[in-house]
């Protein structure tokens, strides 16, 4: 039963994370990351190398602050008009639970902007640590099934 409770807590956490992105509360989304947290979208399937292989996004909190600041800038043209998004998170599986929790989930992100609809899908992996009555993100990795292919511009975090 304890694992069921944990699964429920983790699921809630992931749903809240998705909600913050959909509402455009990027500062609060960033607060979910641990101080040494990393956000990673690899460019290739099964990528293991962060330094020697290019990434779509590989950022620590310092750089994410910059990304988030830009998103709220009045002349960030790629998000003007701002897109509406749905981040749908499902198929949540607790992979390993030690002092660090590894969670796998599926993501479908639908973005509509200026009458143009885009969908990105991927496998997310979160490394979480307990923090108060919630969690902090040590690593969020999103492996897009489109990885290795051709992309339109991506503006809203996945």
């Amino acid at each position: 039963m304890e694992s069921l409770t944990l699964h429920h807590q983790v699921s809630n956490f992931l749903a809240q994370e998705a909600e913050l992105l959909d509402l455009g509360y990027f500062d609060r989304w960033l607060d979910l990351f641990a101080d040494d947290g990393i956000y990673w979208i690899p460019s290739a399937p099964d990528q293991t190398d962060m330094e020697g292989q290019v990434s779509i996004i590989l950022e620590d909190v310092a750089l994410l602050k910059l990304r988030v600041a830009r998103l709220s800038h009045p002349r960030a043209y790629s998000v003007t008009p701002s897109p509406a998004t749905i981040h749908l998170v499902s198929n949540i599986i607790l992979e390993t639970v030690t002092d660090k929790i590894t969670v796998r989930s599926k993501l479908i992100m639908n973005e509509v902007r200026d009458d143009i609809s885009t969908t990105l899908s991927g496998n997310s992996t979160h490394h979480l640590i307990a923090s108060g009555d919630s969690f902090k993100i040590l690593l969020k990795r999103v492996d897009l099934i489109q990885a290795g292919g051709t992309f339109n511009a991506i503006s809203i975090p996945l």
Partner: peptide
């Protein structure tokens, strides 16, 4: 590698505005 990602990624904070 880092330069490539920062500049030409679809999620680039620079290039996405050019696109």
């Amino acid at each position: 590698v880092r330069f490539l990602g920062t500049l030409v990624s679809p999620a680039s904070m620079i290039f996405s505005d050019d696109l």
